[in-house]
Design a protein around this nucleic acid. Structure first.
Lengths: 201, 201
DNA sequence: GGCCTATTTTAATCAACATTAAAATTCATT
DNA sequence: AATGAATTTTAATGTTGATTAAAATAGGCC
């Protein structure tokens, strides 16, 4: 990550804006067309740029993917932090986290990349993303465990339950389209409702 | 599909066996290394073959993916059929389906491909897989609706709930490894248990 | 053993993108 | 208007891995 900081450090706010836009557009492309299905030209076209121009913002396609995933991980981590900081029982905090994460997934922060291609990241990047993922899953499992301890969540296999809910969450970008038949608010409400039922004691 | 029938029709049982083995190995590769991360050479190596030899079984890499997905869809459809045929309330049938599908996902039928790369299929294949997917989702939603009608499932947004559970299910091959710390039987039991809680009235 | 088919290999070929280098343009600042 | 940094384009170049064609091998059957 220090590499990226250095790479970005000196650039102005203009740069940052466009770079962020790039990540969102790329995430949308990867989610919709698949990784191998999206060429840099595809991404560039949506930004009114040439494919070559992307290299001003990114070292390689691999790094573009990596940064998309990193962004996704950051958003997830932020949601998790908020959830943990929320008051109430374990269940309430878990749901608060989910609500925040859903907001990121479906809301204005733009599309978030589904991490389907972690394995084809280069070793260092892969390790980084995998570590963050594990951390995230673990944090969620802790929330569940705390909920069980305080009686707000029904006893269950924590690992399994965590995996199930994370899976359901990760899959959302597959079927949710902003501006589609279902609104972000609906998804948010109904999904947390679903989880409340699934977890509640 | 008629194309594949023709392609396979005259081949003997030897062929069929190896072809089936190919699909399983390929599915495992795609799930573990990602689509772009697995070259035909990778797949071939695991079969003690040369990459070129695969073309005796498959027209192209795209078709290999397609057939993996088709196999996944077939297994899903079979599980669904069994679930529908099972007796009991809507909830019981839904759970029966899930149990069968989990069996296929984690059991001896070998690894089942995660459909992450549908968008990069060629139009005809894409349409075919998408249609089957929709059919499958719809069938599951019907089960849920019937469960609500007969009082075995708590009222909920059927579409949303279906998507959530299908997402959780589809994600399983991402974290489940046969021979890993968690047994297939455990996953099966705990996952259906989870769904029972989530759905039950 | 000889013949026909099924299967696999060897050795090229090809094509699609990713990537790079150099040149052109934009744009703020003076 | 002139200068220099930031941004983008044009025009090659490379590389990876899919694909193909022809040749080699294996195996059942007469």
């Amino acid at each position: 990550m220090s590499e990226i900081k250095q790479w970005h450090a000196d650039k102005g706010p203009q740069y940052r804006l466009k770079h962020d836009r790039l990540l969102r557009v790329a995430a949308a492309c990867f989610n919709q067309k698949g990784y191998s299905g999206t060429s840099l030209k595809d991404v560039a076209r949506q930004l009114d740029l040439t494919d070559a121009a992307l290299y001003y913002y990114v070292r390689s396609k691999e790094e573009l993917v990596y940064q998309c995933y990193r962004r996704a991980a950051d958003l997830g981590a932020r949601a998790m932090a908020r959830g943990q900081a929320a008051g109430g029982s374990g269940l309430e905090r878990a749901l608060a986290y989910l609500d925040h994460h859903l907001d990121a997934l479906c809301g204005e922060e733009g599309p978030v990349a589904i991490m389907s291609e972690i394995p084809s990241l280069k070793p260092g990047h892969k390790a980084d993303i995998l570590e963050r993922s594990r951390e995230h899953s673990l944090a969620f499992e802790v929330l569940i465990a705390e909920g069980i301890a305080d009686g707000s969540i029904a006893p269950c296999d924590v690992r399994m339950t965590g995996n199930a809910i994370m899976g359901a969450l990760n899959w959302i970008p597959k079927w949710f389209r902003p501006g589609g038949p279902v609104s972000a608010a609906q998804v948010r409400g109904q999904f947390t409702e679903f989880c409340r039922r699934a977890l509640g004691a």
